[in-house]
């Protein structure tokens, strides 16, 4: 705190006043480009979306938006489509957690003692899905899981099983999309856990071992608690963004079907906005989503502060 702002530490009532105001202005000059972009393309649109959510508008340049009050919200809340989409959004999130948090945590704990070139090779390989473009992942998995000729179903057939309509069966399609979304994340999460695990002070584990703790006890009582900030961070990310990450796969692979079984709230907004051209419904849904996820974010952050164990 020793370097307070020059602007406020300057004597004020002097003839150099114009220069002082200029100086007070200086940080804003640096902030201007970034803030301008965020205000013009994020915050103002957020307010405009809020406003639009009270109107009926088909987005055609010549048509006038018509004020409808809370109708969009009331209609949405009573719509079976919306209810289904909300349920699906929860399913995406819950389905993703084992892939983005559970499996990576277990793998990181099991493989912590690996060292040397083998470990580097594994790290290099498991990270690859993270940098593969989502649409490329969609195309590749669409091919692997193709009903007639995809490798997965050819293997199933050769072992005498029935083929699975991974993207065509309403009971399966959502989980297929969860899997593709999770496939991109497993390696990345594993590396995050491995990094956090290797940062644990080895003297704790040594001390526990001296006291006769088994390796399971060490995992349960020392390593997992000290990994809790990473566990919570990844869970928070998954809860907040999981349904958004799935959007590409819904749009590219199922179009929300079959029988709307893969539509989540983000896809619903997209459909209302750019397929049926009802800006009011789309933005009203957007406001509800923003509100709910905002609350979830606050709760999660509070939980993180409370639950995380820090080594300090």
């Amino acid at each position: 705190m020793s370097h307070t702002a020059i602007a406020t530490s300057m004597p004020i009532a002097t003839p150099r006043l114009p220069r002082i105001t200029l100086r007070a202005f200086e940080p804003w000059l640096y902030l201007a480009p970034a803030l301008a972009v965020l205000i013009v393309w994020t915050y103002v649109p957020l307010l405009e979306a809020f406003e639009l959510s009270f109107y009926q508008w088909n987005m055609l340049p010549r048509s006038q938006p018509r004020y409808v009050g809370f109708d969009n919200y009331l209609n949405l809340l009573n719509l079976p489509d919306m209810q289904q989409a909300v349920i699906n959004t929860v399913l995406y999130t819950v389905g993703l957690l084992p892939l983005s948090v559970g499996v990576p945590l277990v793998v990181a704990l099991l493989t912590a003692q690996l060292t040397g070139p083998a470990r580097n090779l594994y790290r290099g390989l498991i990270f690859v899905p993270m940098i593969v473009a989502p649409i490329v992942a969609a195309i590749v998995w669409r091919w692997l899981l193709n009903e007639d000729h995809g490798l997965a179903n050819q293997w199933l057939r050769s072992f005498g099983f029935d083929t699975i309509g991974f993207l065509r069966d309403p009971d399966v399609a959502l989980w297929t999309l969860v899997w593709i979304t999770g496939w991109k994340l497993i390696g990345f999460s594993t590396l995050l856990f491995a990094a956090a695990d290797s940062a644990i002070n080895p003297s704790y584990i040594e001390a526990a071992r001296m006291d006769g703790a088994t390796s399971w006890q060490i995992v349960r009582d020392i390593r997992v608690p000290l990994l809790s900030p990473t566990i919570l961070l990844l869970s928070l990310m998954t809860v907040l963004f999981g349904a958004q990450w799935s959007f590409v796969y819904i749009n590219a692979l199922t179009g929300g079907g079959p029988l709307r079984s893969t539509t989540n709230v983000y896809y619903l907004m997209w459909e209302y906005g750019f397929k049926t051209m009802s800006a009011g419904w789309s933005t009203a849904a957007g406001m509800l989503v923003f509100l709910v996820f905002g609350l979830v974010a606050l709760v999660c952050l509070a939980l993180m502060k409370k639950l995380a164990v820090y080594d300090d």
């Binding site: 702002a5 602007a7 406020t8 405009e48 979306a49 983000y266």
Partner: peptide, 27 residues
């Protein structure tokens, strides 16, 4: 600098990732 409004600017920037693109896509 430490300046009035600095913290506000900082949080405006940091919180922008909470706004899902789908919410602002129409505007």
């Amino acid at each position: 600098w430490r300046f009035p409004g600095g913290r506000l600017a900082h949080s405006l920037i940091a919180l922008s990732w909470l706004v899902p693109f789908q919410v602002v896509m129409i505007p």
